[in-house]
Design a protein around this nucleic acid. Structure first.
Lengths: 234, 234
DNA sequence: ACCTCCGTCAAACAAATGTTTGAAACGAAT
DNA sequence: ATTCGTTTCAAACATTTGTTTGACGGAGGT
């Protein structure tokens, strides 16, 4: 392994540099030359280590995702037996941290937001492999909170209401930092956001739980199919 | 005015074609040649009518925004005297329609989502000129629902919870159509989503309203500054 | 010492892309 | 008919960009 002066492996240097550039410029906007300049590597290095630009992007996406997932696991080290509200709190907090944290590699959230704006063929795999099973966990929590009488359509809508509140702070960051200059995305700020989202959502669902059969079925019918129908294509 | 066979003006043909291409490929991904081929215009036409690619993009953004705003006005033709909940319902419905409608030019939502992922210098102007005053209206509605005792920080958080739920269906559309293949974005589907969001949010805020001074202040303090401080830079 | 594999590097290539140019077509006014 | 301003068109230009090439060099085995 020729080291070229720098102890770090060229491959991981490229991976980190590409994550930064891709997250800021997008796939089309990022140039291999920019990435290699930041990684202090030759332009041919990306071809040697990854094949081409697209496979480099795929590797970056996979790396960023696994990294964020390993740093913020789903249940945040929660003891097995806990109330649904505690589990919801842990879930929301982990989700926010994963999307917003400004750590070593802060580009996970930006990369995902970009995937949403302009889906690559990889998005499908990510949804099936990562997002869907994780969302199933949230569905169980919500189902527990709503009680046994809630139909699956209502559970799906509430899950989206919760995830949507979280996702908002990730995708609308440019708007929010402009609207609220003092809004902080550090650990304590994220904790405060998580607490509000949990309180807001639990209150809403408690209301549903109280008056469960006052004609809600007609409204939510067919809004969302009863099951995600986890079908996998591609 | 040379017509080149097509009765439509070349300028508006370019505007529409560019809106479609930009919304699907992004600013960098869209090529002038693609746009002009779709508009049945010469490549030099964009330089003649708009100057360059960036100014074309700016014109498209402005056109799409004004168009969506004129089709779905803020208060949806609501009579002046109505309950806060009715006003919230109208607001949410108009917001969803603006972001999701698949009409003649359906690219408004996609363009905005892209602006969020990769803000151009134009985003700032849009936030100050359009988003901010509109959100102030929602702030008033929420303030009415929460009652006079709610502090501004709590109002800001609830506003974001509502807008976030709506925005979720716009920015996460690629995920949602995969999770829920039957989720429709037509008028009736949007109405159902709006009804759920309103019911969910009103229930949550009613809960806040009931127990207004049970130590909530400590939680929401400093989470969001008390006022948007609508300062305008640039 | 020789060979081989692996990683790196500068240079070059081919394609794509934003932009420009100069001429031509067309309608309206003189 | 001529002129003038406006609009369109094909062609070309200068850069950029993803990709490839062939050589160089070190590490380790025989």
């Amino acid at each position: 392994m020729a080291d070229s002066g720098n102890g770090e492996d060229t491959r991981v240097r490229l991976l980190h540099a590409a994550g930064d550039i891709f997250s800021r410029k997008g796939y089309q906007g990022a140039t291999i030359r920019d990435i290699c300049r930041k990684a202090k590597a030759n332009v041919a290095a990306v071809h040697y280590h990854f094949g081409n630009k697209e496979r480099l992007y795929e590797a970056v996406l996979r790396h960023a995702h696994e990294d964020a997932l390993s740093r913020f696991p789903v249940d945040m080290g929660l003891s097995g037996a806990s109330t649904p509200r505690e589990r919801l709190s842990a879930y929301v907090r982990a989700l926010l941290l994963r999307m917003l944290s400004k750590g070593e590699n802060a580009w996970h959230g930006a990369l995902m937001a970009r995937e949403l704006a302009e889906p690559t063929p990889m998005l499908g795999r990510f949804v099936d492999r990562s997002i869907l099973p994780r969302m199933e966990k949230l569905r169980e929590i919500v189902s527990d909170i709503l009680g046994p009488g809630a139909d699956a359509a209502l559970v799906g809508l509430c899950v989206q209401s919760i995830v949507g509140q979280c996702r908002n702070y990730a995708v609308a960051r440019p708007i929010l930092v402009r609207l609220f200059p003092d809004l902080t995305y550090d650990d304590s700020g994220i904790t405060r956001l998580a607490e509000h989202i949990v309180r807001f959502s639990v209150a809403a669902m408690a209301h549903y739980h109280d008056r469960q059969d006052e004609g809600l079925g007609a409204e939510t019918a067919h809004a969302i199919p009863s099951r995600p129908d986890s079908h996998v294509r591609q």
